[in-house]
Nucleic acid binder design. Structure first.
Length: 455
DNA sequence: CATCATGATTGTAC
DNA sequence: GTACAATCATGATG
């Protein structure tokens, strides 16, 4: 505003001085009378200045410097300067004025979000990688897993550091360059028509250029993180076999539920706990969201995987699993025998209404009718709760039955198979597969054990 | 190193 | 969402 008014004043002083011209005419009227001499003088003055300006580039540096100074001090300089600025503003710069407003780049936002989520660009140690943190928490310092993850975290920190130093460098360079350019332009603005607005615009252009470089940095950082993640956290790449014990427990459950090998969620959790299948077995998959249930989800999903694989592979090649089936049948039967012995004794010595009082556990699973669970619990294992109730007598009867079968089994182990694929229906599916989680009667669990030998 | 075993993932159907 | 089937990828073994 100051400039503007000054410009008007100056213009008035230049163009209208000595003339009583109204309407702001730029050029003085044709000279006549005594005013003619004065008007001619001014015209010549302007002509001189223009000539000097036009020829200044042809002159030697010293000459030009001297002339520049002279021009700078000329009283018409501010006026010409302002006019030139205005013209420049109205012509050249207006062309790219349209794209001045830059909307937030969606890709940049994505990159930013990802870096934030990965803990690269966020606050220091703010959870680091969600995955790494979750894994570290879940593994509880278990051997090789935590090593892997500390390795992962170290690499992530490295990436983070590189990212930050690079970012800092870019910012510093940007600032330096910006101030440099600004100083240069300010300097130039003394002799060239450069308005503060233009300087501002130039700074904007510089920032945009640098932010595009920054985006490249962010992109490559993201790529590095992705590669790191796939290297360290892709569970498939880091497959570990389950422990022998875990496989046994799962197999026992599988073969004792051969008629319906679909453990319920609770059963899966129990099995997972029992097998101590934790995240240490396999690396944690990267959680999509924070605050999930962590290891429990992992455990059950591992059990589900196992049962999925087992079902399909059993079905595919029953013959191959026959031996295994026999083995686990034997185990289960022996367990059953021991359990039955205890149960029968209990039944005899205790009141019939409290048959389990002497036993350390019983069953609380929804499918607690499964003999396997009964065996486990009666055997002193960790299925807690008590839900036995009124059908105890029938269970004891069943157990007696199993004892008989056990005897039969030990005779015929080498020959006939104890497990038979008869549970599979014609198209290869399991019977009752539509209600997979809990359709097993107390007599059906071991039923599959003796199904073949009973005739 | 070839081969098999096995845990995990993916695509499809229900 | 779950189960299944196919497939991938790794681990174990000889």
């Amino acid at each position: 505003m100051d400039d503007q008014s000054r410009m008007l004043q100056t213009l008035a002083g230049v163009n209208l001085a000595g003339h009583s011209v109204q309407g702001g005419m730029a050029l003085p009227p044709p000279p006549h009378g005594h005013e003619g001499a004065d008007g001619d003088g001014r015209k010549q003055d302007i002509g001189d200045i223009l000539h000097q300006i036009m020829t200044i580039t042809d002159q030697s540096l010293d000459e030009a410097q001297a002339k520049k100074h002279a021009l700078n001090c000329h009283r018409m300089k501010p006026a010409l300067f302002s006019v030139l600025c205005e013209i420049k503003e109205k012509t050249g710069l207006s062309i790219r004025g349209a794209q001045e407003e830059d909307p937030p780049d969606p890709q940049l936002m994505r990159l930013d979000n990802m870096l934030l989520a990965e803990g690269v660009s966020g606050p220091e140690k703010g959870g680091g990688s969600a995955a790494a943190a979750a894994a570290a928490a879940a593994s509880g310092g278990s051997s090789d897993n935590s090593i892997e993850h500390s390795d992962y975290r170290a690499k992530l920190t490295q990436i983070r550091q590189i990212y930050h130093t690079e970012l800092e460098k870019y910012e510093q360079a940007c600032n330096e360059f910006t101030t440099h350019v600004m100083n240069l332009l300010r300097e130039q603005s003394r002799t060239r028509p450069i308005s503060p607005k233009e300087i501002e615009r130039m700074v904007g252009i510089i920032h945009r250029k640098f932010s595009s470089i920054q985006m490249q940095l962010k992109q490559s950082t993201c790529e590095a993180v992705m590669i790191l993640r796939s290297r360290f956290l892709d569970a498939r790449r880091k497959r570990r076999n389950f422990s022998k014990q875990a496989t046994e427990i799962l197999n026992e459950y599988f073969y004792s539920h051969l008629s319906n090998p679909y453990p319920s969620e609770e059963a899966k959790e129990e099995l997972a706990k029992k097998c101590s299948i934790t995240v240490s077995q396999t690396l944690v998959k990267v959680p999509e969201e924070r605050g999930n249930r962590g290891s429990v989800i992992q455990q059950t999903s591992l059990v589900s995987n196992w049962f999925g694989n087992k079902r399909i592979r059993y079905k595919k090649n029953i013959g191959k699993f026959q031996e295994e089936a026999n083995l686990y049948a034997a185990k289960t039967a022996v367990t059953a025998a021991h359990a039955v012995a205890a149960a029968v004794q209990n039944n005899q010595t205790n009141s019939p209404t409290t048959p389990n009082s002497g036993s350390s556990g019983s069953f609380n699973l929804p499918n607690s009718g499964d003999m396997f669970m009964n065996m486990q619990s009666l055997n002193g294992d960790s299925y807690q709760g008590s839900q036995v109730g009124a059908n105890v007598q029938s269970q004891v009867d069943t157990l007696r039955h199993v004892i008989n079968q056990t005897g039969g089994y030990s005779d015929g182990l080498g020959g006939n198979s104890l497990y038979s694929p008869h549970n599979l229906n014609a198209n290869g599916g399991w019977q009752d597969a539509t209600t997979p989680s809990s359709v097993t009667s107390p007599t059906e669990g071991p039923g599959s054990v003796h199904s073949d030998t009973s005739n």
